[in-house]
Amino acid sequence: MSITVESPRTLGRRIDVAAVPSVPAGFTVCAHLGWRPSEDGVDLVHTFTAESISDGAAVNALSELVRVGVLAGQDEFESAMVGLIASCCEDPADGWLAFYANSVDDLRTGRSGFSPVHRRARSLVVGHKVLEVGCCFGLFAVQCAQDGLDVQACDICPGALALLDDVSVRLGVGVRTVLGDARALPVSDDRVDTVTLIHLLEHLSSGDVTVAVREALRVARRRVVIAVPFEDEPSEHFGHLQRLSEDDLLRWAAPWIRSGLTVTVFTDHGGWLVIDKPA
């Protein structure tokens, strides 16, 4: 199956993606992928199937293309990612279902490099009602729902939420989605027990971080959980705008400490900021 996606902010460079049994002649082999330049973009082929497609596997393969200069920027990376998933089965909906099922299984069993982050985040959730802000595909939200929690997932991208709506029904988990911006959450005050912002704030400017944390605290009854990556340089293909460190977390924490809230900052596969409101 072949998928063509245009990268809207990269002068319309086309990313043509097709699933193949093996990489044919004329393509440069890179991990599960093969690539060659086309007249107006890049042709990608891949050997992912319903059994092998997952978030970790796809991200690792595409990150290698970024490293060698084949893909550039967030739009090309995301276009290629969507193409891989949608083309790994004859029916794109089956590709997405396989992607979610495999990705969640990898995260739960520790096969994904992101497993420690999700495992720690889930351990920090308090109460029964959870809002994941900046959910993207919603893999964390799905796990929380599987754990029996009442879960809402919020993102600024309607396409991602539509996928999550469909797949969560097919997986038999009750994730409810809400379209919204982390800087102006469309959720009432004190609506949920825990609000999570897992690898979200590095996508925002410094000023917007302050607003997003304030919004999360407005919506949370009990706790806000923040996780960020520590990188040598912001990952452009992931849409990261800031290089963050523990000093940034301490700076973000300072006003809430002064206001009397209980704040914890620690490191574990990146940085964490946990803010607790009084009971």
Rank of each mutant, 00 (worst) to 15 (best):
S2M: 05
T4K: 15
E6F: 02
S7Q: 09
P8K: 15
R9P: 02
L11W: 01
R13G: 00
V20W: 11
V29P: 08
H32E: 12
L33K: 06
R36C: 14
S38C: 06
S38L: 05
E39Q: 10
D40H: 07
V45Q: 10
F48Y: 11
T49Y: 06
A50T: 07
I53S: 05
A57R: 15
V59P: 00
R67P: 01
G69T: 00
V70E: 13
V70T: 11
A72K: 12
E78N: 15
S79D: 10
V82K: 09
L84Y: 12
I85G: 02
A86L: 05
P92C: 04
A98D: 08
A98P: 09
A98N: 08
V104G: 11
R111N: 13
R111I: 08
P116E: 01
P116K: 03
V117M: 01
V117F: 02
R120K: 15
S123T: 09
L124N: 06
L139N: 12
C144P: 00
A145T: 13
A160R: 10
L163C: 06
D166Q: 10
V167K: 13
S168T: 05
L171G: 09
V175D: 14
T177E: 12
V178Q: 08
L179M: 09
L179P: 01
G180M: 14
R183Y: 01
D190I: 05
R191Y: 06
T196D: 01
I198M: 11
L200I: 10
L204Y: 05
V213S: 03
E215L: 06
R221E: 05
R222S: 12
I226E: 08
F230W: 14
F230I: 11
F230H: 15
E233D: 14
E233S: 15
S235G: 06
E236V: 15
F238Q: 11
G239A: 10
H240V: 12
L241T: 12
L244Y: 07
E246L: 06
A253K: 10
W256T: 04
S259Y: 08
L261F: 06
T264I: 02
V265C: 13
H269S: 09
G270M: 00
V274D: 01
